[in-house]
Amino acid sequence: MRSEVDMSNVLDKLREYSKPGYYDEFDYHWTMTIDLDRCTGCEACVVACQAENNLPIVGEERYAEAREIKWIRIERYWEGEFPDVKLNFIPMLCQHCDEAPCETACPVFATYHNQDGLNTQIYNRCIGTRTCAVYCPYEVRYFNWFTYTWDEPLEQQLNPDVSVREKGVMEKCTFCIQRIRMAKDNAKDDGRRRVRDGEVVPACVQSCPTEAMSFGDSNDPDSKVSQVMNSPRGYKVLEELNTVPSVIYLKKVHDDV
């Protein structure tokens, strides 16, 4: 945190603070690419996320009430009329928008943009106004309508690196911030200044059987993600809303096109 204001260059500081976006450049700009041509809609990412991030299993009844918590979900879009139909999958997760509508909404700073270009969610600060989720055009924020518990011995499989959320708290994809944290710590222990490409792998990316997803720092032009994201097939979902998402999708190529 850069909270100390140096009196000698107050004006410079003020100029810096009045600049839209605040960050000139993120320390890392964590970016994900999802190749829709490779996505089979197998939902392995959904399950992996569930296990990694201590997502509650809400049960059939709550699912029917549309209160499931899935930080990443597979959206299905059908094309054409039966029997000539095509099914398209779009894995939808928090887009970590650089100009996120959700962040401005929070009255208590429970969500803000950190120096890694991540849209963070601080559970402890959340008071549950749910405004962020309403403002989110991707609908990837999930609210804890109840306090969920894990029956014995299921609580044994909870990930100790991730907190368990109580009722009344908003939660969402963090790009597995615990793994980013660990990679940074390891880099520091090894005396490296930066994390190497491929060192951080979120649970969903790790589990994708078709390697449709890749993750890395787009500030580094040599990283895998930087190369993939420059593909001519690349696009961002709802780009016209100017939210500047950090997830880049690669278009599906149809045979008939």
Binding site: Y142, F143, W145, F146, K167
Partner: peptide, 15 residues
Amino acid sequence: IVGVGAAGMNRNALW
């Protein structure tokens, strides 16, 4: 006691 889930809101309709 139980949480705001007692009301009819869900993940799409948060208000």
